[in-house]
């Protein structure tokens, strides 16, 4: 990250030479970046927190933004809802620089938004959070019967699948017939 590196290089010569060894390492000023979702609300996130996301981490490494440039150019994630991005940012902040525990109690609890959250986390390539989310999806059907699993995970029955397949075949047949008729008309 270029902004972090700049901070380090500018601060290093100012250090007194007599300082004890333990205090020799200067406090590196934390660099921040900005992200926004579909709702255009900009979230300020530290580089440390964003390291969880392989996608954003890669972008930061490649762009080499300064603080000002980062503020002026927030990363746009138009395919992620604002509240979902907020959840992801919160999780990244809570787990900044910490090893992720095997069971995460800070996981967003709104199951209604789990589907969007899973997709967003997958897109942002946040490996640990994705593992937790998948675990939470799996937990939704823990101890459930096949009928309950069908209901909770919205799995169509075999009869519904067959009906949908028939319908799709019929539609495809009609479209093909329409195309043939149109081609024949063109030929005439």
């Amino acid at each position: 990250m270029s902004s972090t590196e700049q901070g380090t290089s500018s601060a290093a010569p100012a250090e007194p030479t007599t300082a004890p060894e333990s205090a020799a390492a200067p406090e590196v000023p934390e660099s921040f970046y900005y992200v926004h979702g579909k709702d255009k609300v900009v979230h300020k996130v530290s580089a440390g927190a964003l390291q969880h996301s392989a996608l954003i981490h890669g972008m930061i490494s490649n762009l080499g933004y300064t603080e000002e440039q980062a503020k002026a150019n927030p990363f746009p994630f138009e395919n992620i809802d604002g509240d979902i991005l907020q959840m992801v940012v919160d999780w990244c902040n809570q787990h900044k620089g910490k090893p992720t525990p095997p069971e995460d109690t800070n996981l967003p609890k709104q199951k209604e938004k789990l589907f969007d959250l899973v997709l967003a986390v997958n897109y942002l390539e946040i490996k640990e959070l994705l593992t937790y989310c998948c675990k939470q999806v799996a937990m939704m059907v823990k101890g459930k019967s096949p009928e309950e699993i069908r209901e909770i995970w919205m799995i169509p029955t075999d009869a519904e699948d067959e009906a949908a397949e028939k319908e799709a075949k019929k539609r495809a047949g009609k479209e093909a017939a329409g195309e043939t008729a149109a081609a024949a008309g063109d030929a005439k």
């Binding site: 209604e112 899973v118 939704m140 995970w153 919205m154």
Partner: peptide, 9 residues
């Protein structure tokens, strides 16, 4: 129960 479109994943 909250429903989840598993097959859409």
């Amino acid at each position: 129960e909250v429903r989840f479109p598993f097959l859409s994943l």
